[in-house]
Design a protein around this nucleic acid. Structure first.
Length: 318
RNA sequence: CGCGGGGUGGAGCAGCCUGGUAGCUCGCAAGGCUCAUAACCUUGAGGUCGGCGGUUCAAAUCCGUCCCCCGCAA
């Protein structure tokens, strides 16, 4: 027995599971649906990696601007898929859409549902300081990330792990999970476990502003936020110093320092070459910093070149 | 042809507008001081000022062009 599978996905999160299915001899991938190409800096167009992957295996690719239109639905219906495997696709799927595959549409989600339902589960797991996370595969229902779960794999979040790094690890686990679940669907042995509604938390799409650091948070919260926002949208703060306009700075990496006496939040001190910033509770050492228009640099180099005064502090844009 | 910042000894920056001796904070090396040092003092090495072309008596600086890095926007 072999299933006909259609892939829907866009981000790097989708690549490992999609590749696993494409390389599998057990099933047949009959099509791939992904977001239209987007433009990048300058004139350059971002290469859609899912498209490249699908073309590598000579699979037909669809890139509808809106996936729920009559035309789009018709095109996908013609593939006569048994299963849709969805990962980081980026568009809401309407009921008529979900009705197309014989066995249903299944989504790969980057957290242990029902925790962190929404667009940014990986970032939220780190942001909220979770020790454990994982990937969950569930059957898609019209309501957001609410369908019955058919499999999950757990993993511990590493102390220094960023969203980007965790995302790659979860993507690899997704590949494993997908093969397992699809196999069970084929044999009709899959177990559908409803989500415990009382445990639901939300992980809405990360906005640019979510990267802005609020220095009245605890040092631990700031450090989690920095890792959660890496590599996007990146943790951001502004360097304020007397007589100069604030410099927007990205903080790619910080570490939590020892507890210390209370200082005004955002205050910067130089201690033994470290850039120490006071938080609402405790302080963090800034390890790397990237002023606007510049490449990332060691905090020590930044302090050397930018002539930090005693009054210098980090804060909001104004 | 989306907008903008940047390229100056090993690192980070100033100098450029208003052409005329290569500067600052560090790092590195040697020596000194000290019970001691990621402290302090002295000395030293290390630069085709991103590339090419132009203007000029003279270009890091002005003009043209190309290459590379980065932020924003999407």
């Amino acid at each position: 027995m072999s299933l006909r599978i259609t892939l829907l996905g866009t981000g790097t999160f989708a690549l490992p599971p999609f590749r696993a299915l494409l390389e599998s001899t057990e099933h047949e991938v009959v099509g791939a649906c992904t977001q239209p190409d987007r433009t990048g800096r300058g004139h350059h167009r971002h290469v859609n990696q899912v498209k490249v992957l699908a073309e590598e295996f000579n699979i037909p690719v669809f890139q509808p601007e809106r996936v729920n239109t009559i035309e789009s639905l018709g095109a996908l219906r013609e593939l006569q898929a048994d299963v849709f495997v969805v990962a980081a696709y980026g568009q809401i799927l309407k009921p008529e859409f979900l009705a197309i595959p014989r066995l249903g549409a299944f989504n790969l989600h980057g957290s242990l549902l029902p925790r962190h339902r929404g667009a940014a589960p990986v970032q939220y797991a780190i942001w909220k300081g979770d020790e454990q996370t994982g990937v969950t595969m569930f059957q898609i229902e019209p309501a957001l990330d609410s369908g019955p779960m058919v499999g999950k794999i757990e993993t511990n979040i590493q102390p220094l792990e960023t969203s980007g790094e965790l995302m790659l690890r979860l993507a690899d686990l997704s590949a494993e999970l997908t093969l397992s679940v699809v196999h069970q669907l084929d044999l009709a042995t899959a177990v559908f476990e409803p989500q415990d509604v009382s445990q639901v938390t939300l992980a809405p799409k990360i906005r640019k502003e979510d990267g802005n650091i609020d220095w009245t948070q605890t040092a631990v919260q700031v450090e989690c936020q920095v890792r959660a926002m890496q590599p996007w949208p990146k943790a951001v703060t502004w360097l304020h110093s007397a007589g100069r306009k604030p410099i927007r700075c990205i903080l790619p990496q910080v570490e939590v320092g020892a507890e210390s006496s209370a200082c005004r939040s955002g205050r910067i001190a130089l201690e033994d070459g470290n850039l120490v910033v006071s938080c609402g509770s405790g302080h963090v050492n800034v390890l790397k910093i990237q002023p606007e228009g510049k490449a990332a640099m060691e905090a020590r180099d930044f302090a050397n070149g930018y002539g930090l005064s005693d009054a210098a502090h980090f804060g909001g844009a104004t």
